[in-house]
Nucleic acid binder design. Sequence first.
DNA 1: CCTCGTAATATGAGTGCATCATAATACCTA
DNA 2: TAGGTATTATGATGCACTCATATTACGAGG
Lengths: 220, 220
Amino acid sequence: MQGASRLKEELTNPSNPQRSTSGVKRSRELRHALLQRKIQDNPFLTDSEIASILGVSIHTVRLDRLALGIPDSRERTRMVAEKVFSTVRSIRSEEVVGELVDVVLGKSGVSILETTQDMTLERTGVVRGHYIFAQADSLAMALVDSDVVLTGLANIKFKRPVKAGEKLICKAEVIRKKGNKYVVLATTRSTSGQVFRGKFVLASLEDSAGVGSAKEGFSG
Amino acid sequence: MQGASRLKEELTNPSNPQRSTSGVKRSRELRHALLQRKIQDNPFLTDSEIASILGVSIHTVRLDRLALGIPDSRERTRMVAEKVFSTVRSIRSEEVVGELVDVVLGKSGVSILETTQDMTLERTGVVRGHYIFAQADSLAMALVDSDVVLTGLANIKFKRPVKAGEKLICKAEVIRKKGNKYVVLATTRSTSGQVFRGKFVLASLEDSAGVGSAKEGFSG
DNA sequence: CCTCGTAATATGAGTGCATCATAATACCTA
DNA sequence: TAGGTATTATGATGCACTCATATTACGAGG
């Protein structure tokens, strides 16, 4: 509603009488931009919803979508769902942060995390520490050859701030194993060098152990 | 295709001539179970696809869905998409993980985090460590009276696993400050006692310092 | 001033995937 | 063989589109 009136104003406002067709074109481009933004931050909008938001007819919206190569709402929805679903799936059921490559159970492994704007603190543009932590923690957990693995202790150091867009490669290695306790050393680097280092102490629990009964706490 | 033949066999196989209607019912329940599983691991399946997979007519599939309260494929797709979308959202907009209550800048503070199923490892039902870490880290950062704060070091221990639904109360205190370095001690407890303990070393940077130029790395 | 072209709208046919209500048929078993 | 449940079918309807083809509005250029 608000968007509609704003754009309508833009469109019908007699001020700024841009010469020739460029004025018209301008307003359409403006609408295109707005449309893209609206769809970006709510991909589920249906054509008619968009139409009323933009204050134009549904046909215009369709033409605009066509011009901009934006698929219909069902398709958009499907894409969102599929993307998530596939990442979630391919990463051994979403539980892992980052993409596992080359894991040798009980030995060592590598995981890659593409950082995005979503992961940053807005003010600083720096990737939040817990994503980096989660990548390493996830990898460490993946190394332990057991169904139920909990993290007990971690000793971590952030060496350098990471900006959105950097690709983080985390290597981890089991350096000690005693009973059901594993000590994993993980280091994460970006193109520009080492970024993070962490030592994790993990425990594998057999189902019989029962998570609730774990004396020495630990967390998933 | 494979599923179809398998189920069809089950359905038409003259062996196991279960007495009375129970035989028929059994196969339907079997189909229901299969249907649920199929949909679970591919929510995008359309009725007719399911029909051919199960080797029954499309009508049967619809009846089954109705009986099981499973929405149609578009709805399912939308749900998947929405869920992902909203999680991405909530992590993005929440610079702070957990709700801040009672923060005294530079001194101490408390944060509350209601844990949910989303935060758990499916297998164990235990809340993932990085949420707990993030809560404490966020609180620690909030205590530092500066626009730009980065975490450099953390020494953490997970005392006890946390189940979804537990409300986590994290208390943090600045225990040392030297120049732009802060040392914060955080402890998290649930109704059932202490859950987590962490010592964080944070650095506040004035904008002039420039995040990129930070020699001793640190991360947001 | 009027015409021409572009942008915006409209109309109508057709599609995919569904719902809902109401038959019709198959098949088991009592 | 009759009855009842499970399955399949039919037809009407809905939503959110696509695609092709008008029609209308309007701002310049000749």
